[in-house]
Amino acid sequence: MRRNKLSNAIILVVLAVLFILAPLLYPNQSVPFQMMAFMTLAQGVNLLYGFTGYLPFGYVGFFGSGAYGVSILVLLLHWSVIPAVIGGGLFAVVVALLLSPLLRLSGAYFSIGSLAASEIVYYVVSNPNMQNITQGPYGVNLAGIYDPNTSYYAMLVILLIFTAVVMYVKNSTFGMSLLAIKEDPVSAAMAGINVVRRRVAIWLASAFAAGLVGAVYGWYVSVFYPSSVFDLTISIFAIVFTLFGGGGTVLGPIVGTIVLYGLYNTIGVSSPQYFQLIYGLLIVVLVMFLPQGLTSLLKRRGINVP
């Protein structure tokens, strides 16, 4: 247990140092910012997928709810930024609570069900009838609270918190019980584990992560449209990064995001005309030759992956 604590502390410190130094070393702050955002989203997917096996294709629904939560709290209710960001995260939790019956589904049914749910949230937010609340299709302008530097560090705080949450879950009895449920829900229930309550708890925690990331993202960019914060590629990126690194570990989503999002930016700047082609081929090759994720390379050698 102490070893785990030490290695976890090292990971958190390395993350903090890297992302504090990154904008000083490389002037384009958006790259490390978005990397942190995707890393936190990947950890959120990891919480759910890594410990329960539910793969949320509609994860972006929580992200968008968080972004629109901030816009409603700031523009309509005139909250100040930090409470509005936390409130935005809670918006996503409320949406997740409403959608918790989705957990009755499994496998691809759950994935597609959650995708449909996020599309519903998107169509509600962007509907012209919602113009008084969300501005409908006109998009949101939060110029009054725009502050890229403060929101950068807010994202770092959220990243560290949810990395720590994954560490906690991985090493706690709560996490063990989740893995027991994932392995065999019937036996787990017979052993006295409250299957439904635990699944809902991790589902809400995962939604809170995405909601906070969406909220800070909305704050960071300050202008957005429904189609940009409910963009399905956000879900797909978070999932691909998690699976590529390896779910159920602390390190998998971190490494997955750094490598794949790093490559994404490199290709995007160096050979923009073949962006999509190279990235697509890369994903195909990685899945074919590393189907269990990068961390499996270490596990196979008997190395303990935090």
Binding site: I11, L18, Y26, V255, I258, V259, L263, T266, V269, N304
Partner: peptide
């Protein structure tokens, strides 16, 4: 494991940064 983790983190960041 831990060393590898630190190396991967910084290496990955370098890759991301250097690439650009």
């Amino acid at each position: 494991g831990t060393l590898w983790a630190a190396a991967a983190l910084s290496g990955g960041m370098l890759l991301a940064g250097c690439g650009t």
